[in-house]
């Protein structure tokens, strides 16, 4: 029913935006991934699949990709273990503190990512808050050195940063469950525990899937946390992309790594979206 001018006005700007700032760069990236670099560090625009062959043959890339997935997987599991009970408690049992609790989860999102990641440096360092406390309490006599600059530190930092992203969709899906369904379940003889497993959990799965996807995809591509707290053993795939583009000045290889990541994430998003739809009963 809207007139032509109005329809153009609302559709053209976003289309233009997506084309200019997403599709065109992706196309350029894709093209780069089939080019190469000369001895003199010039981009050679000859089509070759050498970059992709390098990715498969050099174990470094697969190793780091595998580690990135392990870290992202651990973050996802930890964030779910923290985020789900919190969302469940706030949605079903908190009365007075419901909105206050919700705000407390949201507020960290307003603080710069960098600050929050940096905070873990001061907590986990050998003269950091945690070690000082442990020594003070005589739990250990020497500071624990493997806390900082390790995959563990990356997992902790990313879990802290991405738990709100897991919490929010789960909380939303829990809030959408009609409370009469819980009453119906109790009425039919199910204890609260059975009601959780048979009614609440299945109906909150779309939120769980959305939250897990957020945590996994965002962690997988994270760059700052491994840089700040990861150390040499905590390097992730984005750090590889960074160093290949920067220090090594091999844009075509960097483009190939990026493109593989992009493809992997897009396939993952497709899968989780399907799963989410399968479990939606709006």
């Amino acid at each position: 029913m809207y007139n032509r001018a109005y329809r153009l006005a609302i559709t053209v700007p976003p289309l233009l935006w997506v084309t200019l700032f997403l599709l065109v760069p992706y196309a350029i990236l894709f093209a780069y991934s089939f080019w190469s670099v000369s001895e003199a560090q010039n981009i050679v625009r000859n089509w070759t699949s050498a970059n992709y062959r390098e990715l498969v043959s050099n174990p470094l890339y697969l190793q780091v990709l595998f580690r990135s997935m392990k870290i992202a997987g651990a973050v996802t599991v930890l964030a779910l273990l923290l985020g789900y009970p919190l969302a469940y408690f706030l949605s079903f049992h908190a009365t007075k503190w419901k909105s206050a609790g919700y705000q407390l989860v949201i507020i960290p999102l307003w603080v710069s990512y960098l600050v929050r990641a940096y905070a873990w440096k001061t907590i986990l360092g050998s003269t950091g808050v945690l070690n000082t406390l442990l020594i003070y309490l005589h739990v250990v006599s020497e500071p624990i050195n493997w806390l900082l600059y390790s995959p563990v530190a990356v997992v902790l930092t990313l879990t802290h940063i991405y738990t709100p992203f897991v919490f929010l969709p789960i909380y939303a899906s829990l809030e959408h469950i009609p409370r009469s369904l819980l009453e119906a379940s109790h009425d039919l003889g199910a204890t609260p525990a059975k009601t959780f497993w048979k009614v609440v959990l299945p109906l909150s799965l779309p939120g769980v899937i959305a939250g897990a996807t957020f945590a996994f995809v965002l962690s997988l591509g994270d760059f700052l946390a491994p840089l700040l707290v990861g150390g040499p053993n905590g390097i992730m795939i984005s750090n590889i992309v960074y160093s290949v583009f920067g220090a090594a000045y091999n844009w075509p290889l960097g483009a190939a790594v990026s493109f593989c990541m992009l493809l992997f994430v897009l396939v993952l998003l497709q899968l989780t979206e399907r799963l989410e739809k399968r479990w939606s009963f709006a």
Partner: peptide
């Protein structure tokens, strides 16, 4: 029997 039936949608 609930007013809005409260059938389990899943």
């Amino acid at each position: 029997v609930f007013q809005q039936y409260a059938l389990f949608p899943h």
